[in-house]
C-alpha cells in the first residue's frame, strides 16, 4: 500500500496526522458484556491495523465479535453492560480509549465515521434527509442553514441520488432501501472522515442494489483515500472489495491475509471450511460440504482453540493450548497449530 498524500487533520486544538499512512491501530482489545447470566467475552484480544486508502474486511458469523469491534472503535458501545478491560485503539497514534470523552466525541464524524446495516432505523424518521445531512455541517463546521443545505444537496448528488435538489426536503420513508443507504453514506462521509466503518452495509438490500452500493463505497474510498473497514459475513462481497481480510471466530482473529491469498489458500480450518460450505453461482453440480456444530456460547468458550469442537483436524493440543496468531507465510497470519498443513492442503 503506497500512501502519496499524508493528510493532516485538525480538530480544534488537536491534530491528527497518520504516521506512515497508518490510520488506525487496534491492539490486544478485549470487550466483555456483563449480564445477569454471567460474563460474555465478545472480543478476546484482537489486534489489527488500517492504513490510508486501504480496505480491510472483517469477516465473521453472528457472535464472532465483528460488529462489537466496529462499535468499540466508534465508541458507541453501551457501557454498561459492555466493559473494555484492556486494549488500545489508536487513531493516528492517539489512544481513543484514554481520550477524554468530549475530545473523542469530536472525532466521530470528521475522523471516524460509520454506516449501519439498517438505514431506516439509523436515520431519524421525523426530519427531512437533507436536514439530517446539513446538521453535520452545522454542528461540526458551524455553517449557516442555507450553506449547509447547499452542501447537503451536493453530497446527495455525489452519492447519486436522482433529483437530489428536489428531494432534499423528503423524509427517510419516502426513499427506497437502496436510496436510504445512499443517504446514510452521505451522512457518514459528510465531514470527510479518514476512516469509514461499514457494518453489513448491503445485507438488508436486494442483490442488484447491493452491487450499486458496494460500487459507490469503493469509488468514494478511492476518491477520498479513506481507510475502509467492511464488516460482513458475505464471502462474495469481500472478494469483490477488500484488500485484506481478517477472519473472526468467537471473539478472536483466526486468520489475516491479503484477499487473493486467503481465497486461494486459506490458512485456518475455519476459513477453509467456510469456503467449502458456500454454494457458488459459478459452479454447478457441486456437493456442499459443511462445518458441523455451532459457534460456541461466548459465556463458555471452550479451552484451547475456540474452534476445536467443530474442527475435523483437532488434536489433543488444540483442546488444551490456545494457538497464537502467528505469521505462517509472508504477510499471512493464522491462529492454528497446524496452519502449515492447512495452507498446503
Amino acid at each position: 500500500m503506497t500512501t502519496q498524500s499524508t493528510k493532516t487533520r485538525s480538530q480544534g486544538e488537536f491534530t491528527y496526522t497518520p504516521e506512515d499512512g497508518r490510520l488506525l491501530e487496534v491492539e490486544d482489545l478485549y470487550v466483555e458484556f456483563h449480564t445477569a447470566d454471567g460474563v460474555a467475552t465478545a472480543i478476546n484480544g484482537v489486534s489489527f491495523e488500517l492504513n490510508q486508502g486501504e480496505s480491510l474486511a472483517i469477516l465473521g458469523e453472528s457472535g464472532s465479535g465483528k460488529s462489537v469491534t466496529a462499535q468499540a472503535i466508534m465508541g458507541i458501545l453501551d457501557m454498561p453492560p459492555a466493559v473494555i478491560p484492556q486494549g488500545h485503539i489508536r487513531y493516528c497514534g492517539q489512544d481513543l480509549l484514554t481520550m477524554d470523552p468530549e475530545q473523542r466525541r469530536k472525532t466521530r464524524g470528521p475522523e471516524v465515521s460509520m454506516i449501519f446495516q439498517d438505514a431506516l432505523s439509523a436515520l431519524n424518521p421525523v426530519f427531512p434527509v437533507g436536514w439530517q445531512i446539513a446538521e453535520m455541517f452545522r454542528t461540526h463546521r458551524g455553517m449557516n442553514k442555507s450553506d449547509a443545505l447547499e452542501q447537503a444537496v451536493r453530497l446527495m448528488e455525489r452519492v447519486q441520488i436522482p433529483g437530489a435538489r428536489d428531494r432534499v426536503k423528503a423524509y427517510p420513508h419516502q426513499f427506497s432501501g437502496g436510496m436510504r443507504q445512499r443517504i446514510m453514506i452521505a451522512v457518514a462521509i459528510a465531514l470527510d472522515p479518514a476512516v469509514l466503518i461499514a457494518d453489513e452495509p448491503t445485507t438488508a438490500l436486494d442483490v442488484t442494489v447491493q452491487a450499486q452500493i458496494m460500487a459507490l463505497l469503493e469509488e468514494l474510498q478511492e476518491e477520498r483515500q479513506m481507510g475502509l473497514i467492511l464488516i460482513t459475513h458475505d464471502l462474495g462481497v469481500v472478494a469483490d472489495v477488500a484488500d485484506r481480510i481478517a477472519v473472526m471466530y468467537a471473539g478472536r482473529l483466526v486468520e489475516k491475509a491479503e484477499v487473493t491469498d486467503l481465497y486461494a489458500n486459506p490458512a485456518h480450518p475455519y476459513t477453509r471450511g467456510l469456503l467449502e460450505s458456500i454454494p457458488r453461482l459459478d459452479q454447478k453440480g457441486q456437493t456442499l460440504a459443511a462445518i458441523g456444530g455451532l459457534p460456541p456460547n461466548l459465556m463458555r468458550i471452550p479451552p484451547g482453540c475456540p474452534f476445536n469442537p467443530r474442527c475435523r483436524m483437532a488434536q489433543d493440543v488444540c483442546r488444551t493450548d490456545l494457538p497464537p496468531l502467528r505469521e505462517v507465510a509472508p504477510g499471512r497470519l493464522s491462529a492454528c497449530h497446524f496452519a502449515e498443513e492447512v495452507i498446503d492442503a
Partner: peptide, 26 residues
C-alpha cells in the same frame, strides 16, 4: 460456469455427510 461435480472435498475441513455433521456438535 464450472462443472465441479467430480470435485472431492477435503474431508479434514468440512464434510458432505449429513450424519457426521449432526454428531459434530449439534
Amino acid at each position: 460456469t464450472k462443472d465441479v461435480s467430480n470435485l472431492q472435498h477435503d474431508a479434514r475441513f468440512a464434510t458432505t455427510k449429513v450424519e457426521e455433521l449432526s454428531e459434530a456438535g449439534d
